[in-house]
Amino acid sequence: MLAYTIRRILLVIPTLLAVAVLVFFVLRVVPGDIVEIKLAAEGGIISAEEIQKEKERLGLDDPIMVQFYKYMIGLPRGDLGISLWTENNVSEEIMSRIGLSFELAILSTILAVLIAFPLGTISALYRGSILDYVIRIITIGGIAVPSFWFGMLLIMLILATFGNLPPLGTISIFDDPKTNLYQMIWPALSVGYRYSSVVARMLRSSILEVLSEDYIRTARAKGVFERIVIVKHGMRNALLPTVTVIGLEFAFLLGGLVVTESVFNLNGIGKLFVDSVVRNDLNLLQGLVLTVATGFVLVNLIIDLLYAALDPRIRYQK
């Protein structure tokens, strides 16, 4: 197990390195000039000389390989450079927002699991019944309806029910859990609906597949109680692919809440993504992509290790 773990961890390094290199060069192909946007996009009286000076100050007129060198030597130290818009450290900009996105991803995951597990299981156990059809309509709807649109419906619902919207500005869960939950539950529901639908459908398929296995028939033939057959033999084996889906969806949420955060005016890294694209803030954008990629790779690593722990066959493979 230790050798397997080390091997998997070592694989993370070249993966992230490849992402870093790719992101750097791909972003340089994108047209746009942050200095022009910052100083001249809204009109005004600024000379070409001033614009050039600003580019020099920010290092944007350095040859691309010099910029690449500076970027790469900073990475091992965790230095992602400065945001070309605010001139604060990219890592500071990201860290100040990642907590909110992380909280939203966790809350959405909890909601998704709480909704998906009973729905997926009931749907599988009562396959072909009216209940199964109802659950299938709900889950297919969840996959079909975009989260942001569902979010907009939720906003209308909140307005119609309470007459006002949750206060703007992040209120920490540690300072005021009630208000924090009132702010976060709606976007979490908006994202969690789709998320739970994906998980429920995966769980349903997995349970159905497992329940048709020979060892389930054997257990039933031996007279094992049905509840034990389902929970101990069925669910446990059906969990492997479901855990993978939950993990991947969670990793996706870390950077994939772009529209939901905008709809609910949340100050997470999704919204920061949008801002950095609009402003052509390449340093911040590559820092964000790298952060999300790191999250994705780490979640994958955890899933792989979890798999290895759950299924001994995996860790013995060379």
Binding site: I155, I158, L159, L165, S262, N265
Partner: peptide, 18 residues
């Protein structure tokens, strides 16, 4: 004074956020 970064102005005004 509390200024908030907003995307659109209709919902925040109607919802009493601003």
């Amino acid at each position: 004074t509390e200024g908030y970064r907003i995307k659109g102005l209709v919902e925040p005004l109607v919802g009493g956020q601003i």
